[in-house]
Amino acid sequence: MRPYSSHRLFAIVFSLALHAGVWLLAIGYQFKYVSPAETPKTAEKIVYLELIPPPSQPLPDPAPTTTPPTTPITAPPPDTALAAPAPAPPPSPDSPRASQAAPPPPTAEEWAFAANYTNKNSKGYRYSWGQQVRSMMGSAVEGPDQGLVRFRIEIAPDGSLAQLQTLWTTSPVAEQLARQAIQNMPPLPPTPTGKPLIFDKTISFSPFASEGPPLYRDDCLPEPPVFRNPFAWDGLSPQLVAAPTPTAPLDPQALADCLRQLPKDSVEAESASDQRLMDQWGSSKTGR
Rank of each mutant, 00 (worst) to 15 (best):
L148S: 13
P144C: 01
I153G: 08
R150W: 04
I155A: 08
A115V: 02
P105G: 06
Q180E: 15
P172Q: 08
L148N: 14
M137Y: 08
D145A: 13
V133G: 02
E142K: 07
A115K: 04
W129G: 01
T191Q: 00
L148P: 10
I155K: 05
D145G: 13
R179I: 14
T193S: 10
E109S: 10
Q131C: 11
I182G: 13
A102F: 02
Q163V: 05
Q131L: 13
P190W: 03
R179S: 15
W168T: 13
T193W: 01
V173W: 15
M137Q: 06
P104V: 09
L167P: 14
S171A: 03
I182M: 14
V173R: 12
I153N: 07
N119C: 09
G130C: 08
R134L: 12
P189W: 05
W111Y: 06
P157N: 00
S128K: 11
P105Q: 08
G147N: 04
T193F: 03
F113S: 01
L197V: 03
K123D: 04
G138S: 00
G147M: 04
G130M: 05
N121M: 01
Q176W: 12
R134T: 15
D145H: 15
R150A: 08
I155D: 01
P144G: 07
E109A: 12
G130V: 04
N119H: 10
R179E: 15
L177P: 12
L161Y: 05
R150L: 07
P186L: 09
P172M: 00
L164P: 13
P105T: 07
T170M: 05
G147L: 06
Q180N: 15
P157M: 01
N116P: 11
E154F: 15
N121K: 07
G147Q: 02
G159K: 06
N184C: 04
T169M: 10
P187Q: 10
M185A: 15
L177D: 00
D145R: 14
K195L: 10
M137I: 03
F151V: 07
L167Q: 12
F113L: 06
V133F: 04
R179K: 15
T169S: 14
T118P: 02
P196R: 06
S122D: 09
P172F: 11
S171C: 02
V141Y: 09
P192C: 02
S171I: 01
D158G: 07
A114F: 03
P186R: 10
V149C: 03
Y125D: 10
G130Y: 01
K123G: 01
R126G: 09
P144R: 07
G147A: 05
D158T: 00
P157W: 03
V173F: 13
A115H: 03
K195N: 11
R150F: 02
F151N: 03
N184G: 13
A112I: 00
T169F: 11
T107S: 12
P189N: 02
E142W: 14
M136S: 08
T170P: 08
T169V: 09
W129H: 08
F113P: 00
Y127D: 09
A115G: 06
T169E: 12
N116F: 06
W168E: 15
T170C: 05
R150K: 09
G194M: 03
V141H: 08
P190I: 01
P157K: 04
A114I: 02
Q176R: 13
R134M: 10
V149M: 00
Q183E: 14
G143E: 07
T118F: 03
T169G: 13
A174I: 05
K123W: 11
T169Y: 11
P103M: 01
Q146L: 10
A112R: 11
A140V: 08
T170D: 02
